[in-house]
């Protein structure tokens, strides 16, 4: 994936995830080890049910590993409690979802401002307005999610994820619910903003062309990293 060096921003060592379902324990991820270097972009690919989204969740501290270790920015995420993880995400991570997950009762501006409000930043709304302008939606600031198109909602979600200037940007199939034109526009915007702000991007995707735009690609099969995963995007995505 990347050279293990001082530039490593995210690291997993033998991480695993087992969940208790109705029919017993289910092993979602097994023995995952990888390093992600700062400012790089990583595509997570693999068939449905292979564990891509779960791996993304482990990296974001949205899910606790049941084995091994997850380290981000030198912080062992497996040792943090729920609130400490929330604070860590607030200060260092942005997340973009396939289904946008904008809060339906908040306007576009309020949605973008929320993470900064949670961080106690006084200028949350000014920065949110600037961020909306950056994604071309300043004229939609007072609209609620239900009044926005899918593409617009995802742009608001992007603005929300990037407004606090996170070190790590996690994206879970960000174009999965969008048509081709909108999807491409969003991806262009995503990579442009990532490059502009210097965030590390980790993205789950099914689309080979999107994976191809990443610096590195990791292929998952049945909860494990496919050992044949190449170091270039094209190899992995094929």
């Amino acid at each position: 994936m990347t050279d293990a060096s001082a530039q490593t921003i995210l690291s997993l060592k033998n991480a695993s995830l087992t969940l208790n379902g109705n029919t017993g324990q289910v092993e979602i991820l097994r023995d995952i080890s990888l390093d992600v270097s700062r400012h790089s972009s990583v595509g997570l690919v693999g068939p449905s049910g292979s564990g891509k989204s779960s791996l993304l969740m482990l990296m974001g501290g949205l899910e606790q590993a049941t084995g091994g270790q997850v380290t981000a920015l030198g912080q062992n995420l497996t040792a943090l409690d729920e609130d400490a993880l929330a604070r860590f995400r607030r200060d260092h991570m942005g997340v973009v979802f396939q289904s946008f997950h904008l809060i339906p009762t908040m306007t576009a501006l309020e949605n973008v401002a929320t993470p900064m409000e949670l961080a106690g930043q006084e200028d949350a709304f000014d920065r949110a307005a600037a961020e909306l302008e950056a994604v071309g939606l300043s004229h939609r600031a007072d609209h609620f999610p239900a009044q926005l198109s899918g593409g617009e909602q995802q742009r608001v979600a992007l603005a929300r994820a990037l407004a606090p200037r996170p070190d790590i940007l996690l994206a879970d199939e960000p174009t999965g619910n969008l048509d081709g034109a909108n999807g491409k526009a969003i991806m262009d915007l995503l990579f442009e903003l990532q490059a502009r702000h210097g965030a590390t991007l980790i993205m789950v995707t099914h689309a080979p062309d999107l994976a191809a735009r990443c610096d590195h690609v990791i292929r998952l099969t049945d909860g494990r990293i496919d050992p044949t995963t190449g170091s270039t995007a094209t190899e992995a995505a094929e």
Partner: peptide, 16 residues
């Protein structure tokens, strides 16, 4: 549930 989970993702603590 979705709103709460989103807020938690964005960094809201349990107390909030």
């Amino acid at each position: 549930t979705e709103t709460i989970a989103t807020l938690r993702t964005l960094g809201a603590e349990r107390q909030t």
